[in-house]
Write a protein that binds this DNA or RNA. Structure first.
Lengths: 129, 129
DNA sequence: TTCTTATTGACAATCGTTATCAATAAGCGG
DNA sequence: CCGCTTATTGATAACGATTGTCAATAAGAA
């Protein structure tokens, strides 16, 4: 799809908005359910498409849950990582400049180019212990 | 299943061995195909079960590929992370003591207990550029 | 060897995600 | 505002990875 020919639809806005309201990471299926409960007639496939678009354009970030589900979250800052409660899903965005550098260095040391990385920390938060 | 009543079977050994021979991460399906090509009559479900066991007992580690497939790799050292070529899948085990500490500290700072983490670095290796 | 039961393997079932495709509607030019 | 083009939608089918089912098999103890 040519970026210049992308259209704005009420469905995409709905997904963007619902994702913004959500706390922590949510799956496409959860989001779809929420939207339907609010009276939207949006289709499941459309939610998947909208989320994939948001992730591709950097407005959301995605991670894989332990059981293979794709989870999304509205993204505020540019690049960051997450500290996630494994019980309630509460998520804290963390700065990791030191680690960013370390990751890029390790890649370079071994001759790997265009390094990217995934770093997530899981734990049990205060209110869930 | 009670750990003390676990039996050793030629199928489990076959999976263990095939995983040891494999370079980088492999999926259960790939491993099943390889075993069948070598004349084994092992079932797909058995490969899944054996790999899950190996991962649970710490003899293999698992990660999720970008498209949701579970990938396994024979595990030599205790705890480590990976530098993975996104083209050919070549994998280098990396030490990350500094980062281990950092991850635990970040968790503790926010009151999170029992911290675990996932750290993987992706890049394009020399021979794939 | 015999017996118990963990394990196997073929297959069905499940679940998340993606492809298909006719119907709809965004946004352009007039 | 009116058509027209075509990106987008939504229902549903298809897909692929994984897990459950269950009768048949075989490990390992007696």
């Amino acid at each position: 799809m040519d970026e210049s020919k992308r259209r704005n639809t009420r469905q995409k806005d709905a997904v963007r908005h619902a994702l913004g309201e959500a706390i922590g990471f949510v799956s496409a299926q959860q989001l779809h359910l929420v939207l339907r409960n609010f009276g939207s007639t949006i289709g499941l496939a459309t939610v998947y498409r909208a989320l994939a678009d948001l992730a591709a354009s950097g407005d959301a970030d995605a991670l894989q849950s332990k059981d293979g589900e794709l989870l999304y979250r509205a993204c505020t800052t540019d690049h960051h990582h997450h500290l996630i409660c494994r019980a309630c899903g509460k998520t804290i965005e963390i700065e990791a400049e030191r680690v960013e550098k370390w990751a890029d260095e390790v890649a370079k040391e071994h001759g790997f180019t265009q390094p990217t990385h995934t770093i997530d920390i899981f734990g049990t938060c205060l209110s869930c212990q």
